[in-house]
Design a protein around this nucleic acid. Structure first.
Lengths: 350, 350
DNA sequence: GCGAGTACAGCAAGCGCTTTCTATCGAGAG
DNA sequence: CTCTCGATAGAAAGCGCTTGCTGTACTCGC
């Protein structure tokens, strides 16, 4: 029923071995023969059987990209850059690798499942993006998986994710702590003293690092930590909206709200506005990531720009072995403070 | 070196066949034996060899999701919903399918390449999302590929994409034409007569349908088509910004700008604002899709809501055979007009 | 207590491809 | 004019798993 290598071989009057060699192009084949084989492939409309090929060659051209939330541009932008680098710029250039992105939805189990599935497929490389979950057993399980993957010849790269100790995975991590710290320092510099913080989900490294940076700035300025000024939520707009209302309820005298990321900041702005507060006259707002829409909000959002696309591209190149890993296998990527219209001097009245 | 089925069999003192049956669970195996096998699997840390398994069984558990631009939430939201439906809600539930999203970047070649790659892997199903490219040869090539995929047993579903004639692909298409028409009618109803239109890339179905809806409304209102009022660009913010400037240059007396989608509308707002025009007092702006951020812009964006997540979920279910295909294999999905703050009555002065 | 039926378990034949090793054919080298 | 070497092409042995078919114990029914 389906066309196989043997059919092509018969039609081209050569052996299956020769057809395979023409298709893989890593063995000398006379031009005339190659020509004949390619014509047969075309005429029969032959499509290589991937599983069979991977089985025989003990390798595959699958590259997996794990993301926490595919609907979030933060991951979309990175994934896009990684994939572009893996598949090559042109259409079918770049060795025909199948770069696929897997959506874990932030679930540790799903992350592990995907890793196993990728291991099953003997993936050529795996790129994990975004913050990790800070659960010891889970972290250990992931580390073990990664170790096994590398052992099996799969290249593992972490992009925007902290290093995984005990593994050979190359890590390109964002300096979330430093970025958050500079952001809060900016607010403090403007004169703010009562700042609310909307954090992400509690068990993630990204959440913790950003929060730590924020608190470090506060501490350095001699402001004591007040747990009532921090609310945890998801990394989305809705969460920012609700958290802001909660923050306001707890202390209506806030002069600034720092959000875990730009989407959250967007929700915060909406909540503030609906509460009759002006931005930044009454309350300043700051985000994180500098997603494309952030420059277009009104007022435009002060945030920390993370070079998502650049980091992704680099991760992709490393995964393909086209760029060397950074010394020590770890590189920290700094974020750049983008001061825009949503932050200003706190009003005297407050 | 690597652990194989045979190793597990040896350890559990059974035949490889039995191990395979325990793992696939579609054949009676005594509880005690199963127990023993599972223990051996665990002890040896055995991972099934995907390619070998797919080869022998002539099927695989790969499901491909093709998107035009993974960095665009429009696709991200759909992909997320599709994937959730395919992998099941829980972590490892749902038969362990590997749902992967492939980013075509809107390139026809890449689309074909991915389709071939998926065909190679003997994918269980393929979901194509978003508008198609309107190039006859390419459309034919895609149709041929889809036909071959269905023949090979791969289920093919189109989500937010027009039907592919000559194929068995189930199509869930968005009523872009109708939505666009209602949107423009809304503007017309407010009294606008000089409306600019920022269209997407010329060769896409989505672009054409939305534009047609817009023009249909215009024509019905007795407004003749003026090609100078339409500018084509990409589906992103930047493009909207530039196109708006161009539109303004051509005719500064515009009272409304209709954008191909919300991101474009965002750029349009920025350009308008920088040009000193108020929204909607001087110029009304409308988008399309109703992405999450659209409700949070200032003023909030009038747009057409497309049930992205619902459509994706349905497509996913159909792809998994968990829901019946709509009669005729085609279902049109309507968009809902969301009238918000960015559109208003044109100012008398203009 | 015996034949029939049932419930498991194993054998072995592939699935379609890659790749090592071997064979063949010329062309220069000696 | 024979020998050797380079360039190609083929034969065949798997890669690790699935599954149809073939046993082999038992369990029942009468």
């Amino acid at each position: 029923m389906t066309v196989t290598l043997a059919d092509v071989a018969a039609r081209a009057q050569v052996s299956p071995a020769t057809v395979s060699r023409v298709l893989n192009g890593n063995y000398p084949v006379a031009a005339a023969t190659r020509e004949r084989v390619l014509r047969a492939v075309d005429e029969l409309d032959y499509v290589l059987n991937g599983p069979a090929s991977s089985l025989a060659a003990a390798t595959s051209d699958l590259v997996g990209i794990l993301v926490n939330d595919i609907a979030d541009p933060f991951f979309g932008i990175m994934a896009s850059a990684i994939q572009a680098e893996i598949c090559g710029p042109g259409g079918r250039a770049g060795g025909e690798r199948l770069a696929v992105v897997c959506n874990t939805g932030g679930s540790p189990e799903r992350e592990l499942t995907y890793l196993t599935l990728l291991q099953r497929q003997r993936a050529a490389a795996v790129v994990l993006t975004g913050g990790a979950v800070e659960d010891a057993p889970h972290a250990a399980a992931v580390a073990a998986k990664l170790r096994k993957l590398t052992e099996a010849g799969t290249r593992v790269v972490l992009c925007g994710r902290p290093p995984a100790p005990g593994t050979d995975a190359v890590a390109l991590t964002f300096d979330n702590r430093g970025g958050a710290r500079r952001l809060t320092e900016h607010l403090l510099g403007l004169g703010h003293r009562r700042l609310g913080y909307i954090a992400g989900p509690g068990e993630r490294t990204t959440t913790r690092h950003r929060l730590e940076g924020h608190r470090a700035a506060l501490t350095a300025a001699g402001i004591e930590e007040d747990p009532r000024r921090t609310v945890h939520g998801r990394y989305d707009r809705q969460s920012g909206y609700e958290a802001t209302l909660e923050l306001l309820r707890r202390d209506a005298s806030l002069t600034a709200v720092v959000a875990a990321n730009d989407s959250v900041a967007l929700g915060a702005c909406a909540a503030l506005r609906e509460s009759g507060l002006r931005i930044p006259a009454d309350v300043s707002v700051a985000g994180f990531d500098d997603l494309p829409f952030s420059v277009d909000t009104v007022p435009s959002l002060t945030t920390v720009r993370l070079p998502l696309a650049e980091a992704g591209a680099r991760a992709g190149r490393i995964a393909m072995g086209r760029e060397e890993a950074p010394p020590g296998g770890v590189a920290a990527i700094r974020g750049e403070l983008m001061v825009r219209g949503s932050t200003g001097v706190p009003s005297a009245g407050k």
